[in-house]
Design a binder for these strands. Structure first.
Lengths: 347, 347
DNA sequence: TTACGGTACGTAAGCGGTTACTCAAATACT
DNA sequence: AGTATTTGAGTAACCGCTTACGTACCGTAA
């Protein structure tokens, strides 16, 4: 890092031992005020900053936590799907920095996730990992070496700590809104990828709301998209083609698919809201800029990142504490695509 | 980190010295193939991963680079301005990870930037810092300890390496487009904050294009906004109030102000493009969702992050190399707000 | 006065690797 | 065959800090 002063110089110049200097630097006990002052003064004068590697080698604490997230390849500058990851990163950064730790981030690019994780593991005290970053077995391997907190996927394996959003509740809420506020009964669901736990949870929530209202509910999603605009468009086309009359509402598995769906409805000359209500999930930035503005469910991604790091830090402090599972509430964001009035939807 | 095997066990079990084990692990020279194999086998069997702290203490290389960025407080989930930071982060992460280094990120929250930076500095081999993260003097202090690469601000002080986007060229290009493609001569400019180097550069580009076309060019911006929607709106109101007829085009210092301007024009019953062409700068996500879609200039933020880390790594490899300055080209993104046809502007 | 607990520090043994030096054996060169 | 190199590996001195122990000194209770 740099060939500057060491604790030895500080010790020598201040007339104390390295032990005392070390204690002054972080212990806060076992020395007098005058001692502390002179040590601090010498340290400042020398511009001494304790060497982090040496410190963590001796104390077995890196003071760094890691964040693993999946990288969906070369998403262009307009890609929204990446956005939620950024929010998580920000939240995690905030929690870590505020706690005095540093945070190191790494994207697992498809293959080689384990190798990456290995290299990261060596540098951190613990890891928070976003769903989809790592195969389950790799996760298991990693978690034997350092504490791991899983984010955003409801299937928390291996008894790991977990922090996520209430996908099910959010989907249920938005579906219930369509039913009770807009008196709609014929509500279709456009799911995301079959393997996506989030998509599944959302479907379950959708289904629960229907059942709770005494409406007929399919056992499994009618159509699946891939969480992209075009995927959502295709899925909706398929759905429309399979019916003689369009449904009165379509609950999409996420915002991007919903936006793709909006275009399809336009093409079919179906008026959004008036004829077919549409809802998304995630509340991406674009959701309030499309016309009509999109009713959706906001996930507190930033909070998830923050909470996950908080959970990790707690675990680091007490490795034997019981497993922690946090499900953060989601927010229903009512805009116009469901039929709610224009006002209040603009901001 | 964990109380697992050390290099000593590996050495003992493989029958070689720690030096040989160490060499096998990264040197790639000075031992036979059979030796390597048996060492590697024992290492794998023991599940040994070299302790990072020990390694970096002994080798004086952390294998970690840091990224400092400003945090604009509690920006809600819809805040666009934060977006570009995320792109930079992604780019930096990518470059670092691909180079086998890890990347550590930290947001400087207003005050205390120096302290944060200090703590980060101890953990990394070098730093890439985004404009606005640190006061100039703090930057100077930091850069005496580790190599620093500055991003996105054209005023690179202290002879530091620098990577940025061609703000001037972008502004010139978009202005020239208005002139040559749309035959517009009366073009106004809404600047950002007076102190913003980016805003200044953009104004210079705008001015250059006017001069190059033989048009009259103001010596300094007519009006200033603060890079926000409302600021842009206000600035445009001021500008309109100061003229008897509106300009045929307004080049805004960034997208958000331009979007604010769009609303103002609507209020004034002025048709965008047909009567007043509008352009932005940055190509934020919303730019292609507002109506009319916004013609703007895209900055390769991701590339800036990547390039900055690349530059840092190069500097780390050769500290005495001459100062590196990279200005990445910007892209003109033609949509409809300037008068270009609708097609091509949707995606 | 003596015994004892508490404070304020010092000593020095690690923490787990890296790497400058050495050295013997194998190989290459005259 | 004799010598100069190269190769493969070992020894051990660090890297800079933390921390378990040990010690000297001081105040206080018995």
């Amino acid at each position: 890092m740099n060939d500057k002063a060491t604790i030895y110089e500080v010790a020598r110049m201040s007339g104390f031992s390295t032990a005392t200097v070390s204690r002054v630097m972080h212990d806060g006990t076992g020395f007098s005020a005058t001692t502390r002052d002179s040590v601090l003064q010498v340290a400042a004068q020398l511009g001494w900053v304790p060497n982090h590697s040496a410190r963590s080698l001796a104390s077995r604490r890196a003071g760094i936590v890691g964040l693993l997230f999946p990288d969906f390849g070369e998403d262009g500058p307009g890609s929204e799907s990446a956005l939620y990851v950024d929010q998580v990163i920000r939240g995690a950064e905030r929690a870590a920095t505020l706690a005095g730790d540093a945070i190191l981030i790494a994207a697992t690019r498809g293959h080689g996730g384990l190798e990456l994780a290995r290299s990261v593991v060596g540098k951190v005290d613990g890891l928070v990992v976003l769903a989809g970053s790592l195969a389950a077995k790799d996760l298991a391997a990693i978690s034997t070496r350092v504490p791991v907190v899983l984010m955003a996927t409801h299937t928390a394996p291996h008894g790991l700590d977990f922090v996520g959003a209430d996908n099910r509740g959010g989907a249920a809420a938005i579906t219930a809104h369509l039913i009770s506020a807009h008196r709609i009964k014929d509500i279709a669901f456009v799911a995301g990828p079959r393997r996506s736990p989030d998509s599944r949870e959302r479907f379950v929530g959708y289904r629960q709301a229907l059942v709770a209202a005494g409406l007929q509910a399919p056992a499994s999603p009618e159509v699946h998209g891939d969480f992209t605009e075009s995927g959502g468009a295709e899925a909706l086309e398929t759905l429309l083609a399979g019916r003689r009359t369009p449904p009165r509402a379509v609950v999409f598995g996420n915002d991007e698919m919903a936006i793709g769906g909006l275009a399809v409805l336009r093409r079919h000359k179906l008026r959004v809201a008036a004829e077919v209500a549409v809802t998304g999930f995630d509340d991406i930035a674009t959701a309030r800029h499309v016309r009509p503005t999109l009713t959706t469910v906001r996930q507190p991604m930033r909070d998830i990142g923050e909470t996950a790091v908080g959970t990790l830090l707690a675990r680091l402090a007490d490795r034997s504490a019981p497993r922690q599972t946090t499900v953060l509430p989601t927010d229903l964001v009512l805009r116009t695509s469901c039929g709610c009035s224009t006002r209040g939807g603009s901001k």
